[in-house]
């Protein structure tokens, strides 16, 4: 049996209080292509998430990132911030 390799795109989402969410946007799941990681599709997913989850803070900006851009130390998770070019711990 052959399984398709998964494929996804990581996205840094900055909220209006400067807090940071990390989205994994699924491009290919185990059944095959699901969606393209276009700006339009990502914004639609973020909009859906915010519309349905009003407790999440408004989003001021987002950008595509690589998995390697995410800090290695998760104990500092609450202090992760996105500078626009890198994710740093503050």
């Amino acid at each position: 049996m052959t399984r398709r390799p998964r494929e996804s795109q990581f996205i840094a989402i900055v909220h209006d209080d400067d807090s940071l969410s990390i989205m994994e946007f699924v491009v290919v799941d185990s059944l095959g292509p699901l969606q393209l990681a276009t700006a339009e599709n990502v914004e639609a997913t973020i909009a859906k998430m915010l519309r349905e989850q009003p407790e999440l803070r408004p989003v001021t900006r987002w950008r595509f990132i690589d998995r390697g851009d995410i800090p290695a130390d998760r104990t500092t998770r609450s202090r992760w911030r996105d500078t626009g070019t890198a994710i740093v711990v503050r």
Binding site: S21, I22, M23, F25, V26, L34, M49, R77
Partner: peptide
């Protein structure tokens, strides 16, 4: 579609 790590 996606999962989002919104906090610890």
């Amino acid at each position: 579609t996606s999962i989002t790590d919104t906090a610890t």
